[in-house]
Design a binder for these strands. Sequence first.
RNA 1: GCUGCCGUAGCUCAGUGGUAGAGCACUCCCUUGGUAAGGGAGAGGUCGAGGGUCCGAUUCCCUCUGGCAGCACCA
Length: 650
Amino acid sequence: MITVTFPDGAKRSYEKGTTAAQVAASISKSLEKKAVAAVVDGTLSDLSDPLQSDAKLELVMRDDGRALELIRHDCAHVLAEAVQELFPGTQVTIGPVIENGFYYDFFRNEPFTPADFPVIEKKMREIIQRDKPFTKSLKSRDEAKDFFRAKGENFKVELVDAIPAGQDIKFYDQGGWIDLCRGPHMPSTGRVGSAFKLMKVAGAYWRGNSNNPMLTRIYGTAWANDKDMQSYLTALEEAEKRDHRKLGREMDLFHFQEEGPGVVFWHAKGWTMFQQLIQYMRRRLTKLDYDEVNAPQVLDKSLWETSGHWGWYKESMFAVTSAGDETEDEQVFALKPMNCPGHVQIFKHGLRSYRELPMRLAEFGTVHRYEASGALHGLMRVRGFTQDDAHIFCTEDQMADECLKINDLILSTYRDFGFTEFVVKLSTRPEKRVGSDAAWDRAEAIMSKVLEQIAIESDGKIKTAVNPGEGAFYGPKFEYVLRDAIGRDWQCGTTQVDFNLPERFGAFYIGEDGNKHVPVMIHRAICGSMERFLGILIENYAGHFPLWLAPLQIVVCTITSEADAYAVDVVRQLKDAGLRVEVDLRNEKINYKVREHSVTKVPVILVVGKRETEERAVNMRRLGSQDQKSMTLVDAIAALRAEATPPDLR
RNA sequence: GCUGCCGUAGCUCAGUGGUAGAGCACUCCCUUGGUAAGGGAGAGGUCGAGGGUCCGAUUCCCUCUGGCAGCACCA
């Protein structure tokens, strides 16, 4: 006999080999019906697994959050079966659960299209209706390979090969359709229910390697019930409404065009925001003893060879030559993809003393990278962008302190933009790297300690994590990830310590001892790419910017032409107060004007008519509200001016 | 870069093997209207580019280019 302990502490005895399903049945009929899996000693398992020893057992109902993974996983199996039933000859590969759903990768000469979805979904519903049990069996490696080889499932044969020797190879049979799977599954296909939907098709490389064949991936979403699925679909629509590419067009912020793939045409309104961002950053940097510099756009390729970028990233750099001169000895330049070599040149220009350290060189540096065409995505991934970059030259002793100062700067900046949830990740040495292991050891040791301190000083409010092998080729880095208003995570800031580049460039300072020393260099960015950061802000605020950031803060709208002169005067006074304002004197009804400026998300509409003209007043309407507030012009200016003050100046 | 889909007016989108249409925006006229679209008229397109098939291509085929969704990449 074995003893089973339930979550409430109750214990019951069963014969050894009793399954969780039988345990459920022994308690109640409804439990037997409702349970879809078991958690045995903390591990999610099949209900059909026999219990071999004393165990803690929890029965998982279908509406339990932990069952969602099973619903999605089972749904992926159902999808695969449906596809193979409908399209014989299609090979199956893998079909994991992902956030909000699942996917399944298929190999078929003719790829699937969304037009195939209705018939596949219909077949899936049919399979779910059949409600066949999932039954598990074990095969030896050879049996498994023979099984798949006989079916022509070459990808599955490879998967079997990849399973470590000695490990059980599990198969699940769902009414005759059998798949390799580590499980667990619910008792039968019927439990998948009806809240699922195929979402899109896409190509995906076999095993994620671009040298491998391309498979067709079908993405699906699945939920415990229709209500959950509906709210997910609604959330997707909401996210679409905030798409910065759409808002950028509607708010007249920027555009792209064919002649400049991946480079932004900033319109006046977008550029205003860009400048607000830069001015904010610049004020903060000045207070923190940074020196702003500007290094050339185009530099001889030898500099990039020295830095190592040419060797590592040549294929994604823009080379620049004279268009007219076709002689052979022409010098090859590169458009800068990074600011660091330029800053090292500035550091090197002149003999540096330890007294000058830490030397913090900042630049709003425009860089160009020839990103793969498929990687381009609005402002989020471009080929020409501006980094709020800085390089701090310091001693090894000063390093940890500088990292902490940067940490404060980054997090307080994010807070000023309304973000509250962050994760700091430490990325350690990658396989492709320069520098000695000893140097990496030292750098990583310091960084780990700093990371610990960040977590402690924030009382655990700042989450931390480690990304092994994700560091830059010249050093480990901290990555700052923020969470936006609709729960999406964005990696923006980064702090990278570098024991290599200064040495490669022969940078040194004279130490207290009168000898030459190589400084440590810290690369750091807060927004990262200003373009991308603005994209994130647009989506985070859904275009409803706080007043200090809004490209156009106020529109003064007249009701009748009798108010024109007064309206112009109001605009003058608002402009004199430093506010960004336009006047709308058009021969249109006030409804029309209010609608238009609301659609383009102007935060404040000041309406002036006959009354206001007589009283030297304005009628204020805020974006997102129908309320109207009448006040004197003097009061309105004072209030708006205060509100438009950037957070660092309050 | 890879796979799939797409490219028609400033925007959103119809449509056709016989050289194109709507709504909004734009211009003009009427209207001076109190908080999310007043009425009328007009102008606006080498149907992404090049090549091919055809009597004839915006439509069918090929190449290129750009975009979208994933994948891969992201110093």
